[in-house]
Nucleic acid binder design. Structure first.
Lengths: 342, 342
DNA sequence: GTTAGCACTCTAATGACGAGAGTGCTAAAC
DNA sequence: GTTTAGCACTCTCGTCATTAGAGTGCTAAC
């Protein structure tokens, strides 16, 4: 639907005023805010029309208007002019990310923290995934006679480790056997190929050594799973408590903590537009239907790998947040690509 | 101060009732709850006395009584009988911790989650520290021609890693030089000895190779710092939102997120009793003065290494939570010791 | 030392009321 | 045909008075 220019101006003003103040806007207030040479009555007529069309709504008769979900949508799609990020915010982002340390997870943690500070929203992000990733390296670092730390590195830069205990002594022979198996059966394979079945078959084929080495193989399979799993990172949740108009923060925070739904959401929309905005009821999950979710995928080595998302009330400053998120995802992608590059 | 037996009975009843219901208790209600063959008037007299002594207080004239901080303290110190943990909770704890994977951080995360679920409180924990810990092993895993992942393992079982980039090519010679330096100057030293000065001196002494190797040494120093630093882990923060009587959850959650104050608190009281309870204003930090903090140190290899803490409103079920926390810290200590044991 | 009884105090809930904000509509003006 | 002034209307919010109920402290009797 296309609105008249004046209606657009009025709608934009309502959205921006409401975002800024949190108060419903009346025709008089609006008149002061936008400079159109008409009277409040005219504005009222236009507002009545906008109401009828569903772009704004009234909490109650004697209150002003607030944008409806449709109103926000129209604003985001057509009216909003995106601010350029101020140079000092860009610098801040770059500075904070540059000393994050090179692991994807650390980069995302830092990115999440910066973004949370900058936006006063909750920030979620998913660790990079790559269906074509393969196991690149496995290291076994002995800690004691019966314990060792196993480290697995994937071609997409994910590093996972865990301590494992063996029942029999962890001697050189055992370690060598392990490395042989690894380089023969695991290096270069994708993590998802490391099935329980494969592990069992291998263990059996080793005969007498089977018992000694099986704890190591189990650990290996655990690590493969961990490597493959997308993780959801969460920052700035407590920011959500600052929005007094938030209905039940607990439910939302628990939803974010659970993580899987969002992970799936991000994974599912990978192909789409660069930055997506889901407003209120546009969200599939009930827990998000009082919020807006803005998310954007970052690319590692030219391929979409994971996403960063912002969550706040529907009344957030879209015009400011969208560029911030966009810039950050670009930087995150760039840094991760740099680290991986051979 | 020593109260008469009847006063103690009444105080205990007030505390327990208030913990259970959240409602101030009146003399009549109390009469039904405790079975003492006296009238409500007698109870009233006793309650008046307890009020005078500061053990209980009245939100307003026509309300019942609630325990004061002093009242809680007396209850915790003298009246409360600690419940034995039900066997199924013990089993749950053990089960959840057994598949945590062996790294301290993972164990603590799991422990925190279980405890948060069991208690409906926020759980904090500090990673183990050991002033005598030394660098046990450093590994450099090449990822590309100019990048590598460095892994540092301390004798207390802490594993830290980071990616580092070198300006010049990461060839075998460079790697060998690095390992030589490491084994000569770093292995067996405590992380705190890895000063910037030492790093600079070493880099200088290498002459022409200095430039090539310095990124590696910087990474090493970063890792040493990370290894030494105590980390504060946080679970179940959103539980705090369920207590409607909580004044400003935001402030508290930000305080927990910041972490250092609690880290210091735990570090400072290491020598004391096994389990400590700080009620309301007994807490040094303003942000905690509406809460109670229960914490307990876990021992790795017989030495206090870190702590787990529970945070909730002063109105929490001390009799149930203290044993839960205590049991969990024991198990955590045991598991960590097992993993470390040679 | 204990108890019954009672006056007293305070909260929470309820309803009445007026001020204020904002609207929609109508009729006149441009 | 659009715009505007004016006005009646509606609804919220704060204030105030009133009431019911809970719980107390005190006194006098046991």
């Amino acid at each position: 639907m296309q609105l008249s220019e004046r209606k657009e101006k009025i709608l934009a003003a309502i959205v921006e005023w409401y975002i800024a103040t949190g108060e419903p806007v009346g025709s008089k207030t609006l008149l002061e805010y936008i400079h159109i040479p008409v009277s409040s009555a005219t504005i009222r007529n236009e507002m009545a029309e906008l109401s009828r069309l569903g772009f704004i709504e009234q909490p109650h008769t004697s209150a002003g208007r607030i944008p409806s979900q449709i109103g926000y949508r129209y604003y985001v799609d057509k009216l909003m002019n995106r601010y350029e990020l101020p140079i000092n915010e860009k610098r801040l982002i770059e500075a904070r990310l540059s000393d994050a340390g090179g692991e994807p997870q650390q980069i995302l943690e830092q990115a999440g923290q910066v973004l949370a500070e900058l936006t006063n929203c909750a920030v979620v992000s998913t660790t990079p995934t790559d269906e074509n990733a393969v196991i690149r390296r496995v290291e076994l670092v002995p800690l004691g006679t019966h314990t060792a730390m196993m480290v697995m590195l994937s071609s997409s830069g994910i590093l996972k480790s865990r301590v494992c205990r063996t029942d029999s002594e962890l001697n050189l022979e055992l370690i060598e056997t392990f490395y042989n198996i690894v380089s023969k059966h695991f290096i270069g394979k994708s993590a998802s190929e490391v099935s329980i079945a494969l592990i069992q078959t291998l263990a059996l084929s080793l005969g007498s050594k089977s018992l000694a080495i099986s704890p190591l193989l189990v650990a290996l399979s655990d690590l493969a799973q961990l490597t493959e799993q997308t993780q959801l990172l969460l920052e700035g949740q407590s920011n959500l408590l600052n929005y007094t108009d938030y209905p039940n923060a607990y439910e939302l925070m628990e939803f974010l903590r659970r993580g899987e739904p969002l992970t799936n959401l991000f994974a599912g929309h990978k192909a789409e537009n660069n930055t997506n905005v889901l407003i209120g009821k546009e969200n599939f999950y009930r827990e998000l239907q009082d919020s807006s979710l803005i998310y954007s995928h970052y690319a590692v080595g030219g391929k979409d790998s994971g996403a960063l998302g912002l969550i706040g009330p529907t009344r957030i400053d879209y015009a400011r947040l969208i560029p911030s998120l966009k810039y950050l995802t670009e930087i995150v992608g760039k840094i991760m690509s740099d680290t991986l590059e051979d």
